[in-house]
């Protein structure tokens, strides 16, 4: 378990100090894929770099399995870091080393025996599907392949945690999907707890179990992805999670209702059901739902009838069908 307690980070600067993080409190349970999402400059990179003490927090505690890393000796910190892999937006491979030598790098640092290292490298390249590229140099690889090498390298010492700072931001959508799948597989198969920094919704959406939203140096909300996504509280979370919904709804007048589908509703098309069962026609202002295994997920915004009786009828119908709704968007 990783816990950040009252964490502050301030960068001193001539033109006044820059506050990058302020009173960050976060608990990351083992086995989670924890997303940290925020706009550029929010402090995401600083936050993740504080977890392995690449950046020394100005105040507060970083507890990794109960050990406060802000207090440990340098030697011990090196050991702890071997238990926390990290991958980056820019891959950060050693350009003068082959793929296999890159993956071997952390093993060399940890003074592995040659044979053991060789076997481990082969195993890791197999895991990320790059066995054939063992002798290639990073400059001969595509972005997706480079990130696979970086992942293999980060996993070389069998870490319990993996930090990903915008690991897919430099990749195209298809490659992003493939890398995210790989991360998911690593989480499932190897039980690695993964912390994912991103500004992209879809990354959180597709792999994370938990999410924290960071804005202007503060965590503004956090929780299970399903909960945060269904009912984003903060303005910034809404903008990140349902940007188009917010935009569409703001430009429309009248009473509105936001429906949230999280796969637990009765399997009936709601809008046509309303028309048929209640005889009430509602306007759909916005809909972004998807169907997975016959279940519906996503958001929909409808206009409420002006008539209060009819409006109550609509809500009643929704409750009957287990559809969660919210009046203030």
């Amino acid at each position: 378990m990783i816990q950040l307690i009252h964490l502050d980070k301030t960068y001193p600067a001539a033109a006044g100090d820059v506050v990058a993080l302020e009173d960050i409190n976060l608990t990351i349970e083992d086995g989670a894929i924890y997303g940290i999402i925020g706009l550029s400059g929010a402090g995401k990179s600083t936050l993740v770099r504080c977890i392995n003490l690449l950046e020394k927090p100005t105040a507060g505690q970083v507890l990794v399995d109960g050990e406060d890393l802000t207090k440990v000796k340098t030697k011990r910190l090196y050991e702890v870091r071997r238990n926390i892999g990290m991958i980056f937006q820019g891959f950060n491979l050693l350009e003068q080393r082959t793929v296999e030598a890159n993956v071997r790098f952390p093993l060399e640092l940890a003074k592995f025996k040659k044979d053991a290292a060789k076997a481990r490298v082969a195993q890791l390249l197999e895991l990320v599907g790059l066995s054939e590229k063992a002798k290639a140099y990073p400059s001969q690889l595509s972005g997706g392949q480079k990130q696979r090498v970086a992942i293999a390298r980060a996993l070389a010492l069998s870490p319990k945690y993996l930090l990903c700072d915008e690991a897919t931001s430099a990749l195209d959508p298809n490659t992003t999907t493939a890398i995210l799948e790989l991360l998911k597989e690593i989480n499932k198969k190897l039980g690695v707890t993964i912390i994912v920094i991103t500004h992209e919704m879809r990354v959180v959406d597709s792999i994370c179990t938990d999410v924290a939203v960071i804005d202007q140096s503060h965590i503004v909300e956090s929780g299970k992805v399903a909960d945060v996504f269904a009912f984003p509280q903060s303005e910034i979370a809404k903008q990140l999670i349902i940007p188009e919904l917010i935009r569409t709804v703001k430009s429309a007048g009248g009473n509105k209702l936001r429906l949230v589908f999280n796969g637990e509703e009765a399997d009936t098309p709601v809008v046509s059901g309303l028309a048929i069962e209640c005889g009430i026609a509602v306007n759909i202002l916005y809909a972004d739902t998807k169907n997975i295994d016959g279940k519906t997920y996503g958001h929909m915004v409808i206009t409420l009838p002006e008539d209060e009786g009819q409006a109550a009828q609509v809500k009643e119908y929704l409750e009957k069908n287990n559809v969660t709704y919210k009046e203030e968007i």
């Binding site: 980056f88 950060n92 350009e95 930090l163």
Partner: peptide, 27 residues
């Protein structure tokens, strides 16, 4: 030498001496 590569080495628990010998000079 790319600062990011140095940072990656640091994240793997490399000591400063290791970073000089195994990152800075070879790269």
């Amino acid at each position: 030498v790319d600062k990011g590569v140095v940072e990656a080495a640091r994240s793997m628990g490399a000591s400063n001496f290791q970073i000089i010998c195994k990152v800075y000079l070879p790269e």
